[in-house]
């Protein structure tokens, strides 16, 4: 048995394939871009190619993320909040609070012992305190997103970034640089500002340990350090942090498949018969 989870985020689209033992068989990540449907398909195919499997091997697929209703091969849609909770609790069973920081959204989620969502809070009005803040900083400084963390960690004297608005902060960064401030100090300030915003979200749902940090920004070491310093507690960060939503979605798919439900990628195709037919043609 093979199940799939596809997480269509604002910036990246992630896919995860799990086998009958809930073991991750493959993960994939593509840029979402403007065409959400194609992004979902590309991520799904990339994961299948990595696992050397075909789409009819997939028994059930769950879509999540903001583009979940645009996954054409999705059998069920589950909110990213439930999926992140599911995925985080699967990887770190002691998780009680989740911080999911993505390209445009930051969410704080409180879960029960059974990975049930108890409460959540998110930035619904603006992009303050999200990954976009980092993207903006990277653009102004003309740096790659992946370089930010290592540069920020060299800072001896982090600057205070006073603006909350992502657009205003671009201007503030330019001003600091024009005054001759060091890039690493500016960047450390940016990380610290985002940490401050997300901790405010976490406090709204209650800061019960263990805290698991998910989403694309969790790959950023400087962000993890900034959060840990302010919270004075270690965070759970998985190597596959960016894929936790997709893994959670795949776990929901696993539950359905375990009850014998069969999704469309499998039922719509003739399965191995079609594969054999195609092989005989080539």
């Amino acid at each position: 048995m093979l199940v799939a989870g596809v997480d269509v985020g604002s910036t990246g689209t992630k896919a995860a394939l799990l086998d009958e033992n809930k073991k991750v068989r493959a993960l994939a990540l593509v840029d979402t871009g403007a065409n959400v449907v194609r992004a979902a398909e590309r991520a799904f195919r990339e994961a299948l190619a990595k696992a050397e499997l075909e789409e009819w091997d997939v028994s059930f697929t769950v879509g999540t993320g903001y583009g979940r209703y645009r996954v054409p091969f999705g059998d069920l849609q589950v909110t990213e909040i439930s999926c992140h909770a599911k995925g985080a609790c699967f990887l770190f069973p002691q998780t009680h609070t989740i911080l999911d920081m993505g390209g445009q959204d930051t969410k704080a989620i409180r879960v029960s012992e059974t990975a049930e969502v108890k409460d959540f809070s998110m930035n619904d009005k603006c992009a303050a305190g999200t990954g976009r803040f980092l993207t903006a900083a990277a653009q102004v400084l003309n740096l790659g997103l992946d370089d930010l963390a290592s540069i920020a960690s060299e800072s001896k004297k982090p600057l205070k970034i006073s603006n909350v608005c992502t657009v205003f902060v671009e201007q503030e960064i330019m001003m600091h640089l024009a005054k001759g401030c060091a890039v690493e100090d500016v960047l450390a300030g940016v990380h610290s500002a985002i940490a401050g915003r997300s901790i405010a979200l976490l406090r709204r749902v209650g800061l019960e340990p263990e805290i698991t940090f998910t989403g694309g920004v969790a790959r950023n070491r400087a962000m993890v350090t900034a959060l840990e310093e302010r919270l004075k507690v270690k965070l759970n960060v998985a190597p596959e942090s960016q894929h936790i939503g997709a893994i959670g979605a795949a776990l929901f798919a696993w539950e359905r498949a375990a009850h014998g439900e069969v999704g469309k990628t499998r039922s719509n195709s003739n399965g191995p018969a079609e594969r054999d037919q195609r092989r005989s043609l080539t």
Binding site: A34, Q104, K125, C126, A127, A136, T166
Partner: peptide, 16 residues
């Protein structure tokens, strides 16, 4: 969206 950044995604959605 009031936010200039979030509005961008909304624009992209309209384009799509």
């Amino acid at each position: 969206s009031i936010c200039a950044v979030l509005a961008e995604s909304e624009v992209i959605n309209h384009v799509t």
